[in-house]
Computed example of a mutant assay.
Amino acid sequence: MHLIVLLAIFALAWRLRYTWSETGASWNQRWDRTLAIFLLPPLLLFTSAIAIIWMGPHGRMVWVGNDWLSYDLAIGFLGFAALYWLKLARSGWLMLQQVRTYPTTELDGNSVRLLNLATPYIAQIGFWEPELVISQALLDTLGTEHLGAVLAHEQAHYHYRDTYCFFWLGWVRQITTWLPQTEAMWQELLVLRELRADRWAADRTDPLLVAEALLLVVQNTSALTENFSAAFSQMAPADRLDRRIEALLAILEPSLDDRVDVIEPQHRQYQQNLSTWAWLLLALLPLLAVPFHT
């Protein structure tokens, strides 16, 4: 019976991911919907595995007996997830220790780590309290105003704790790569994260400055892609740069609203939609099978 439950949850998880598409009336709704569908399938699998281990391989569930196969699969899945988390955490911790060996300097009242890199680069690297890393090449490339826009963008990543949140989301991505559309949803979350930071910077500086700085930096850099790195030059497929530029220009030209998705004002952006997040309560569904086990 446990195997039947496990197969049913697997089919549901597959179906949820398969039906996802890049649609939504606003960026806020797209973020909520993508994040919910990205998280719900692995949460269902986790709670299913926990429920099966809790009930054990012996006894009966309803009218059907249980077996060791589902029990072993549950232990194997949780063990694999735990080991992969340890691997990612260790990799992030080692990189953070390396970053903290870089010399520090004061920039616009902030302490930053100076990176000896020949290309323009700036990023938050770490977990809950990331380090801001900047290359000398970026300081030489950008003027004062453009540099202020880039710093504001990175301040948004710090404010939203993007490095910490995307470390966990990156872990989910790695252990569910076999589910459909995992990579597409991951790229969507990345671009929505960058659009949020772009809007934060645009509200505090100037949208045109952010767009110009984005073009200057992205065209000349090779961005890190680790889950615990949030870089101004974070790139995904090439069309995502166009979407970021269009969203910034739409702030200056309201007439573009009918042709591009405009980011919502800062005080409304990415608010949690309770009706969307309520669907995550479905993740507790497998635990309801525990009382039927004898």
Rank of each mutant, 00 (worst) to 15 (best):
T182R: 01
Q234D: 09
A149D: 04
I9Y: 08
Q269D: 14
G59S: 02
T101E: 02
T144W: 08
E226S: 14
V210P: 06
N227G: 00
S255E: 15
E22K: 13
L287V: 08
C165T: 13
A231F: 02
W171F: 14
L209A: 04
Q269K: 11
T23N: 00
L288V: 15
R33K: 15
T205H: 06
P41I: 15
L86A: 15
T276H: 05
D198Q: 01
S21V: 14
T205C: 02
P207W: 09
Q29G: 10
Q219G: 14
D239F: 11
Q219D: 15
E226F: 13
E246G: 10
Y164A: 04
L6Q: 09
P42F: 12
L43Y: 02
L7E: 07
G126N: 10
H293K: 13
L249M: 14
L12Y: 04
Y270P: 03
L224E: 11
R17P: 01
N66T: 08
P120W: 01
H293T: 05
E194H: 03
T221D: 08
V112Y: 01
N227H: 15
A230F: 07
W93S: 05
R60N: 07
H2P: 06
G79F: 08
P237M: 13
T19I: 15
P103E: 02
L249C: 03
P291K: 10
L7N: 06
L151D: 03
L83N: 03
D162V: 14
L192S: 05
L179I: 08
R193S: 14
P120I: 13
V112E: 04
F232M: 10
T104I: 07
L192H: 00
T177M: 10
